[in-house]
Design a protein around this nucleic acid. Structure first.
Lengths: 190, 190
DNA sequence: CGTCTATTTGAATGTACTCAAAAGCGGTGG
DNA sequence: CCACCGCTTTTGAGTACATTCAAATAGACG
C-alpha cells in the first residue's frame, strides 16, 4: 500500500533508505467507504491525504443548500480542506468518498517535525504545491475564457480517467453548470 | 529598496546576517514604466518578481483578442507567468505595468542554487505558494457560488487598496464581466 | 419487477452579452 | 479659460446562453 506513495515522492526528491522508512512510518492508513465523509464543515483538519485507491470529491455547501465541487481526487492525488489544514481554521468543505477508498494521511504536526528532520520534504511539498497552484491558475483562465461547451470538452480531454468514474451531474457541478445544461451541451456534441 | 523584501522573508523564516546578505545579493532590481511589459507570450520567463512599488496586471489575450485578467499585483506581492517560470515553457501571459514600478527579480537558476545553499528558502516559498494556492481555491469557490454582484463586493472588501488604483473595466475583466455589466451592477448598488 | 436516482426534454425566465450611442472626465493646446 | 480629443463609463435595445421548474424517460440495483 505504501510503495506507490514512496515512488511518488522519490520522483521529486532523493531519500536514503532510513529517510524513506521514517517517512513511511508517519503515514496513517485510512479506509473510507463510499458515501462517507473524510472531512465535514467545522472540523479542524489535521491531515492531508494521499489517495492510494478510490475517488473522492471536495465540495462546498452554501446557505441555500447548493453544492459546489472544488476538486476531485483519484489514485496518486492529494486531497484535503487545505485552507483548514494549513491555517488550522474550521473547514468549509465536505470531503466525501464517491468510491471505497484507501488513503494515506499525514498529520500536520508530524509533518512539521518531518520538515525539521528531513528538509527535503519542504522541497517535495513546495514542488507539489507549485504544480497545484499553476493548474488552478489554468483552471481560472479556462473559466474566464472558455464557453461551457469548451470547458466540458477540456475536462474530458484532461481527465479522461476521472470523467469515466463520475456522474454527469458531478461533472456539471464541477464546471459550474446545472445538470440540465450539461445534458443539452452533450446533446449538441453528437 | 531591499529592506521591504527582507522583512517580508523574515516574517516566515529565520536567517543569519550572512544568509540575509546572500539573499539580497541575488535580487535583480528592475524598474518598469507604466504601460510597458515585463513578460510577453512566448517568452521563457527566467524570473519571478517581488513588487516594491507600483501596480501590475497579468492577463491572457485569446485568439479573438479578448483580454482575461488573471492577477493584479501591488506592493509586497509576487508576480510572474508562474507556469512559464516553473516549467520553463513559453509564457502565455502578458504582464504589464499599470503604474511605474520598482521590482526585485529572482532568477530561476540562481534560486535553485539558493535552495541548495539555504534550504530555508524551500520553506519560505513552500509557505508562500501554499497561501497563494489556498486563495486561488477560495477564488474558484467564489466564482462557482456567488453572483457577479457579490463577487464585485467581495473584491472591493478584500482588496480595497487595489480596487482604488484600477479602472472599472479592469475590475470587470478580472471578475469575468464586461464593463457594461459591471456598470449596471454598480448602478444598482446606490 | 419495482424503486430510486440520474438524465433528458420542454417552456418560461433571468442574467450577462453584443452593438451602438451618449455622457462624463481628464488632459492638452490654442 | 475654453474647446477639443481620447478614453472610460453609462445607457438602451435586442440577443444568447444557462437557469428554473416541472415532467418524462432511462438506468442501476436490490
Amino acid at each position: 500500500m505504501k510503495s506507490k506513495i514512496l515512488s511518488h515522492v522519490l520522483e521529486i526528491i532523493d531519500l536514503t533508505k532510513n529517510q524513506q522508512d521514517e517517512f513511511l512510518s508517519i503515514l496513517n492508513e485510512k479506509t473510507v467507504t463510499k458515501k462517507s465523509f473524510l472531512v465535514k464543515p467545522g472540523d479542524i483538519v489535521t491531515e492531508e491525504f494521499y489517495v492510494v485507491e478510490g475517488c473522492l470529491v471536495a465540495y462546498y455547501l452554501d446557505e441555500l443548500g447548493n453544492k459546489h465541487i472544488l476538486q476531485f481526487a483519484v489514485e496518486d492525488w492529494w486531497i484535503s480542506d487545505f485552507e483548514s489544514f494549513f491555517n488550522q481554521v474550521p473547514a468549509k468543505l465536505y470531503i466525501e468518498a464517491i468510491e471505497d477508498c484507501k488513503l494515506l494521511g499525514i498529520n500536520k504536526e508530524v509533518l512539521e517535525v518531518l520538515y525539521q528532520r528531513i528538509p527535503q520534504f519542504e522541497r517535495f511539498f513546495r514542488i507539489k504545491t507549485t504544480k497545484a497552484f499553476v493548474s488552478l491558475r489554468c483552471r481560472i483562465l479556462s473559466t474566464l475564457q472558455k464557453s461551457a461547451k469548451e470547458r466540458y470538452l477540456e475536462f474530458c480531454k484532461d481527465y479522461p480517467d476521472i470523467e469515466k468514474r463520475l456522474a454527469n451531474y458531478q461533472i456539471a457541478n464541477y464546471l459550474g453548470l446545472k445538470p440540465e445544461s450539461l445534458s443539452r451541451i452533450r446533446k449538441e456534441l453528437v
